[in-house]
Amino acid sequence: MTGIDSVQLKGVIVHKVGNPTRGEELRLSANALTLNDEIVSKLLTKYFLGSFNENEQYHFTHISDLALNEVYTYVTQIFDNPASFEAQSALLAHFLYNKSTHVKVKEGEFYVAHFDDVPFGNSYVQAVGLFKSESKETFLKVFPHGQSWEVIHEEGVNINKLDKGCLIFRQDRENGYVVCVVDVTNKQQDTQYWIKDFLQVEPYADSYHHTNNYLSLCKNFITKEYPEKFEVAKSDQIDLLNRSMDYFKEKEDFSMEEFTREVMHHDEVIDSFMEYKKNYESAKSINIEDEFAIHVSAVKQQQKGFKTVLKLDKNFHVYIHGRRDLIEKGIDEMSGKKYYKLLFDEES
């Protein structure tokens, strides 16, 4: 998240949340942190907010009534009555503790924070943040000892690596607020307790999520399903990845019919892709529209994961950016080894 220099950290409280199935405790703090040190406040703000992608927005949900979503209700109380901050943080910690029963859930510090002047679009709003640190790192501390120096080790939290976070903007309350989420640990389907069980959030069906989901779908199909269903060379996979990414970079709007015709070409590949899309949506519990506006930020984010490198043993890495017709593959009769022939005009 950018532009956080103006953010005001109004209050933070820390609770210790364990895993009840391992006999670990829930230990509640009696009071919020004393934020007299401006440097500490700035470091906490960076730790809390630095990892969020403000374009990737969610909202609170509930199967029957939004008011029954516990986190939504407790956060609303903090917005409406800031004096209840500590009491509501304890209720949030209790609820998280009750949802931390999976065997892979780790004990950690649970922070509840109240912010003001958080950038949101073209304005600045209040926000409540929920964060959990599960990973500890070892640090060396050098200190003076008489006429010499000594070194000890300490365990602590890396402020550049937020494990789990949720930032709730005071916007669009009636639809479950606007929420940003971070979850870099326990990404397996059975351990997503932070997003599914605790927060109970779903992504907004907007252009960012449609673009992001469709590019993830394409990447998974091309790298996993495509080579299993069809006999294709690695260079053909990379070519299809390039064509998919080029479509999203060059167009302003997405059309399923146009995309499959221009990128997939062959009917049997299109049929396989459409079947994969149906299964992908079902497995991910999402619905990707057939037409939507392409979001530039989502394209830039996904481009990092589109690997277009052809790795040949441990000797060569060939970066392929286009023009599959200028690559020829064959087998050398003398050595029996495979080869690629690259046709080009000049080198640089």
Rank of each mutant, 00 (worst) to 15 (best):
E202T: 14
D65H: 02
S133N: 13
Q57H: 04
F316A: 10
E38F: 09
G165Q: 09
T76P: 08
S123G: 11
T21L: 07
I288T: 06
S29A: 13
K277W: 12
T138D: 12
K341L: 08
S285K: 13
A32N: 01
T73I: 02
N186Y: 03
E291I: 00
C166D: 11
L199M: 12
R173Y: 08
P119I: 00
S207R: 01
E70D: 12
T45H: 01
G305P: 07
V142K: 14
L140A: 14
H15L: 06
C166G: 11
M274I: 15
V181F: 01
D163A: 12
N122G: 11
I63N: 14
Q303R: 01
T260I: 09
S255K: 07
N220A: 08
A293W: 05
K304H: 08
T45K: 14
Y74N: 13
E252A: 11
K141D: 13
N287K: 04
K278Y: 10
Y247L: 00
T2N: 15
H102T: 10
E109S: 06
F198M: 01
F115W: 04
G156R: 04
D267W: 04
G305R: 03
L68R: 15
V17T: 12
M256P: 00
F60T: 10
N81C: 12
N175C: 07
N55I: 04
M274E: 12
L310Q: 07
E268T: 13
E275T: 05
L162P: 07
F60D: 06
T138N: 04
F221A: 11
E346Q: 15
E333V: 05
T211V: 07
L28Y: 10
E333W: 05
N213G: 01
Y97K: 02
V232K: 02
V179N: 09
L240I: 05
A283L: 12
L44E: 00
Q302K: 14
F139G: 03
I13S: 07
